[in-house]
């Protein structure tokens, strides 16, 4: 049956309408759960709030498990889902830069826009910083291009790389997630509480 739009169950014209609705819901939930505060992301590095890590692990395992059950039930065809191409070294370097940006600025690009929505000045500065960064990157793209397009491994997944069943990866990942949840709470209990 699914994915709904590529299989024509929903006309492709609805793409942007649905994107808008999901975007609104996403922004609302992000604001409502406190991600518009820069302390939420900084908290991971200082050890007083691990909501971000928990959020990402929960998203990953819930969607992975859910998708495979839905694939079994025939609601979603896993093979039709988009797999982002792997650019190994650019991804690592980009990840390091993004992490530094998180630490210095306290926002993810998404949460910064969310925080601008509720009128935070620091988020505005962060967003301007993003624009400057994008500008510098675009202007120096000629220099960076060999690196940027190098080490492209295509649309690979962990099951291709390790040659093991996706079920094992999901189970191992779930166990890792639960262990991480436990230890993050363990650390949080030992760190001085920050109220914000």
């Amino acid at each position: 049956m699914g994915p709904l739009i590529p299989n024509g169950l929903i006309p492709i014209e609805w793409n942007f309408v649905i994107a808008l609705l999901i975007g609104l819901a996403f922004g609302y939930i992000m604001e409502a759960s406190g991600f518009s505060s820069s302390r939420k992301i900084i908290g991971v590095f200082y050890g007083y709030d691990f909501a971000v890590i928990k959020l990402f692990f929960t998203t990953a395992i819930v969607s992975a498990i859910g998708l495979y059950y839905m694939d079994y039930l025939g609601w979603v065809d896993i093979s039709q889902l988009y797999v982002h191409p792997t650019y190994l070294w650019p991804a690592i370097v980009g990840g390091v830069f993004m992490g530094l940006g998180f630490m210095f600025g306290g926002y993810c690009p998404g949460t910064s826009l969310c925080a601008i929505g509720i009128g935070k000045i620091d988020a505005l500065a962060f967003a301007v910083g993003i624009m400057i960064g994008v500008f510098i990157f675009s202007e120096s793209f000629g220099l960076l291009e060999p690196f940027f397009n190098g080490s492209n491994y295509g649309h690979i997944t962990m099951m291709d790389t390790f040659g093991i069943s996706p079920y094992w990866i999901i189970l191992i990942f779930t166990v890792i997630a639960v262990i991480v949840f436990y230890f993050s709470d363990f650390i949080r209990k030992r760190v001085k509480k920050v109220f914000y």
Binding site: I61, V62, I65, Y68, Y69, D71, Y72, Y167, I170, L171, F173, T174, V175, A177, V178, F181, Y182, D185, F186, K189
Partner: peptide, 27 residues
């Protein structure tokens, strides 16, 4: 108490759901 019971329950549920994938009959 380090972890709330609800969270324990959710963690066990997630691991069971992940393990349950192995028992799905062939499609």
């Amino acid at each position: 108490i380090l972890v709330k019971t609800e969270y324990k329950f959710l963690a066990i549920l997630m691991i069971l759901m992940a393990a349950g994938l192995f028992f799905l009959p062939e499609k």
